[in-house]
Every structure is written in structure tokens, then in C-alpha cells.
Design a protein around this nucleic acid. Sequence first.
RNA 1: GGCGGCGUAGCUCAGGUGGCUAGAGCGACGGUCUCAUAAUCCGUAGGUCGUUGGUUCGAGUCCAACCGCCGCCA
Length: 668
Amino acid sequence: MNKFYITTPIYYVNARPHLGHAYTTIACDAVARRQRMLGVDTFFLTGTDEHGQKIERAAAAAGKSPQELTGEVSAEFRTLWDRMEISYDDYIRTTEPRHQQGVQALWRTIRANGYIYKGTYTGQYCVFDELYVDAVGPGAPCPVCGRPTETVQEENYFFRLSDFADRLLKLYTDQPDFIRPEARRNEVIAFVRSGLRDLSISRSTFSWGIPVPDDPKHVIYVWLDALANYITALGYGSGDTALYDKFWPADVHVIGKEIVRFHCVYWPAFLMAAGLPLPNQIIAHGWLLFEENKMSKSRGNVVRAETILSVLGSDALRYFLLRETVFGQDGSFSFDALVQRYNSDLANGLGNLASRTLTMITRYFDGSVPDFPAAAFTTAENEIREAAETTISECNQLFSEFKFSVALELVWIKLVAAVDRYIVKNEPWALAEKPAEDGKSRLAAVLYTSAETLRIATALTHPIIPDATSRIWEQLGLGEITKLRLSELKWGQLAPGTRVGKVEAVFPRADKSAIERMQKMEIVQNPATPEVEIKPATTDATVNSAVRPPESGSATPKDDHKISIDDFAKIDLRVGQVKVAEKVKGADKLLRLEVDLGTEVRQVVSGIAGSYAPESLIGRKVVIVANLAPRKLRGLESNGMIVAAAPENGSSVLVSFLEDVPVGTRLK
RNA sequence: GGCGGCGUAGCUCAGGUGGCUAGAGCGACGGUCUCAUAAUCCGUAGGUCGUUGGUUCGAGUCCAACCGCCGCCA
């Protein structure tokens, strides 16, 4: 069957799209585009994951309905993909009826096969990770994210994951390429070998999700919901399963390394339980680090793709991400490296080669690809030709292994740089001066060889840099590049007599100001430094350094703003525990809290109602400025204040501890 | 703590089963051409191959310990 089905994860809409999302999606797009160019019937799916308690709460905090919030963010993702020339064939949202219907059908099938039962769970739950947490007591932090967990007791449906350990291990053995890279595969095998417990697959403590069939008090666990998108988008569980019949199982699910377990353990088990075919491969890439640090919302160092798009264009971003990083390993991003790559590889490399080659054809042959006698094709030409032919076949292999960086490097070394060298050695401008007829035919051979190599390099890189290569293709006089069949690409297909178009730079050089412009845009649009809401005068470097991202530019504290340790010691920061929390009537943003400081219980009024529901705070350990002068807010006396980070989007994030700390402990 | 991985030129990385003078790309420095986007091309840069011991005629390449970094352990 000549088909290819590739997927990105569906992105969780609790965060705005950033470079990490772009990275996954670009890699999939490059592969999908290449498959289409090979003539394979290709289906490329992406979408958004929109259910769960986290979304429900985020929406409440933003004063929106979950539908409004998810609609907005989902649209943002889609807009970004369009700007990045992502050629997805379908975009699924888990809130769509077609998905809900498919998920419920999947549930029913698994249940009918006897793999779902009802049980009770008591313990800690991390809302952020949508995760039940074992082996920690009440109030303990989530081992994954460090956020406080909540104690819950609920009746749930469970999935008999424990039945699948043997079948999963057999799968990993029989299909060694099922999980890649190798390191991830080994981790998964170790995990499964250590024993599988049944998995809770329903929630009854919130309602933003897909109802469990025949028991609508429960909603289906977000991961079962989300993973199913890979089949519901194809029509599984609907009246029209034509796409499903044609494209399932997927050829490859591309994911980030943080969700390996869900895709390599749970998903195959769900499919086995439902009696459905398994995907052929799951490939996990690494993280994109920003100047050595993990990009994350809480660090405030998330880089938005839009910034790069607006300054350098989509090809620059696509090229950089796939060239600079080794797929599977963590990669690092910086504006500096981006601009350097752009200039050295794209502007000075491919762009300049196109420019000089086409200009010479225009100048010396009146804009028409020259013909030449066979005798003019010498050893030098033959070397280039052979390099082009081997590169074509090696690219096939490298792309199929997701080795984008190697493939691109190869094209640049074997084709782009080789032709630049070839041109200088053969000096077409000098040949053009020669009056003799042999000079003319050599000139023709040199320019034909250059143009033909340019054509092949353009064809091979089109899946990665679609925009510029389309334009080079047109300038070569070849029309629509999408009509090209990569499977038939070979040397000599450039027809003499082809009229080249108007020569225009496809990658204009970027100057240093590009870096500054991008940095400035990030700082304005993505206020990187959450300010610690103590008091302006106490924004001391020692307090702030923990949350200050590197290179936050203008935020560097000036010496004359520094304070002494004595100044800092004036602030009495203490650990307290919230005993009572309630809304202050008539005030949207205020909560009245009673906080136990060990020696006394204080009343504190805090403007965090937009970010936290009162009930979610009870029992939580917080940091209190204990010696703040009392102040009246809405008639209530506030004795102290709660320390929270205050990102500029208006929400607040309370300071908390990863380890347990006794109430009353002084911070210093 | 258990299991696994990594540490090679300023930067990013190659270096199956041990053996020519340890490589590539980028950057830096010097030079050149002029078709081209102040692009190209040529040359140079002399890196304890994390540390310390082993095995061996010979070790980035095998073994051990140690240091540092990272991943997985619901």
C-alpha cells in the first residue's frame, strides 16, 4: 500500500504555541512533504488537546468558559501553522463531536472486551499533570512538577493495563524500531519490565471532558481522550471510515520525549484492548533548550515562533531547527545561532549560489539554459554529477531515519559548497571572454552543471524550506515545484533552452540588528521576568535570581538598585499554611485568607482570586511577609501579604516549596 | 537509591567489532577572484580525545574507579 500517515501530538491548549511546538510540527511537515513529493498518498494530522481540569481551571481564572478559551488558543495554533507553511491535511480538536463520538466508541469497544472495571482511588492528585500520585502524603508536592497535590477520593473506571505487559514486551522485541531512538526504547522496556499497574481512566471531580458512555458523572481520562485523536480524525467510530481504512495504522507518531510513556505503553495497550492495529513507529525528539536552559513558561524564556517568522521568515526557522539539532537529542536555540546559520548557509550558501548561477546564465546565454557538446563535459563535471547522484539516494535514507541535520549538511557539502568551488576553479567569467568556440562550449558545460546541481539541491531541500525553493524553482524556469516527483529526480533533467526567470535574492542577508529586533520583540510580547511581588524596593538580586531567566536584557539590576543584606533582613518572610480562604464580596480579585504562622493565625487579604479558587488554597503552604504594616482592603484588615510571582498577563503564581517545610519557618 | 546514557578543537558535532600524522561544519585570523547577497574560493588555527589506573605490541575506541552533566524509575 502506497500510503503514509504521520502525526504530531495534539497540543494542550493551556499554553500559547512556542518554539517547542513548532519544532515537532516542522519535522513532521518536512517528512510529510517529502512523502508527497515521492508520490506517496500522505495524510498529515495535527490538532489540539482541549479537555481536562487544568483547562477548566485556567478558563475560570481567565473569566472565560472552557469553550471560549480552547477556541482561542486552538485558533492561535492553527494560525501559526499556516504562517509556518505547515501542510497538515487535517486539524483535529478534542472538543469536536467527531472526536467525542470516536472516543466513546473506543471506550465501548475496550469495555466490551472486558478491559475496563470500576474501582476506588484514594490519594493525592496533581491537577497540573492530571496525574494520580503515589506514595506521598497529603499536601506533598507532585514528584513530576513540584506543584502541591490535592487529596482526592473517587470512584473511577480502571483499565487493565496489567494484562498487557507481556504483549507490550513482545511488541518491543518483535519490532525493534517501534520506539526510537534506542535510549527511549530502553527506558520503556525497563518501565514495563518493572511491572504495570492498572490505570485509572476516568475522573468524576470535574466535568470538562468526554462523558463516559452510560455513566455521564464521569469523564474520560484526558490521555485516553487525547491519544484516540490519531484514529478519530480518520473517522474511527463514525459512519464514514474510509480514511481510517486507508491510513490506519499510522506509519509514525512523532512526539517529544516527555510523553514517551503515554505513546509507547498506554496507547499500544489501548489499541490492543480494542483489537485495533498498532502504529508502526513512535519517534521521540529531544527538547529545544534556550541558551542552555529548558524553555518553559515558568522560566519565562519561551521563544515564540512568530518573532522569528516576522524577522527572518518561515524557511529560516524551519531550516535552523532541523539543521542545528540532532533529532532525538536536545537542541539549543539562540537568536545568535539562528542568524549565523541563516547567513552562512542560506544567504551565503544556497541563496548566493542561485543568484550567481542564474545571473551568469542570464548574462552569458541570454537567460536560456545552455546546451553543450558531450566533449565539453569533463572530469570536473562528472565529479559533480556523481556527487549529486549519491546525495539524492543518501537523502532518501537519511530522511527516513529523521536525520535531517545530516541530510542538510550533506546537501550543503556535496552540492552547494562543491559547486561554489567548481565555479571558482572553472572561472566562467574568464571563459566568457574567450572568443574561441571551445571557450563557449566549456562555458555552457560549466553553467549547465551549476544550474543542474542547483536544481537538485533545491528539489532535495524543498520539504524543509518550501518557500525559498519554490522561488528558486521558478527562477530556474521550471514552474511549480510541487509538480516535481522526487522519486524520479536524477541528473540531466534540466532541459537546455529552459528560460530562466528574473533573478531575485531568496535569502537576503540579515544584519546584526535582526538579533536585537527579535530579542526586543520577545521582551515586549513575552515579559520574561516575573516580578516578585514583595515591594519594589526589595526586588533584590538574591531573591530574584532564582526566577530570572538568562539574557533578559533590560532587566539587569543596576548596582545603585542593590540593597544590603541588612536591608533584606528587615523583611520577615515566613512559611504559613492557609486555614480559611474565601472570596471578598464586592471584589473580583480579592480573597480573604486566614493563615497559620505557627505562633498566630493572621488575616491576609490578597489579590489572587483571578488565579486561585479559594478552596484550592486550603491547606496549602505559602510565604507570608509577616512584618508588613497592616492595611485595610474593602474594610478588611490585612496583616501581611502573600508572596507570588506576578507575570504581566495578570495572573499570579504562589511561591511554594518542593520539600515540606514546617509552618512558621523564617526565609532568609 | 536502582537502571541507562553522555563528557573529542571557541561553538555544534563525526569518529561499527582497538592500529596510517584524531576529523567535519560554523566561527576566528591571513590571502584571492569578481559571476554573485561586502557573497565565493585558498591557506592557517596545533584539541591532556572528563580524571586516574589497568588490559594490549598498540586505546577517544576495551576494563575499573572517580569527577561532572543528563534521562527513566506511573
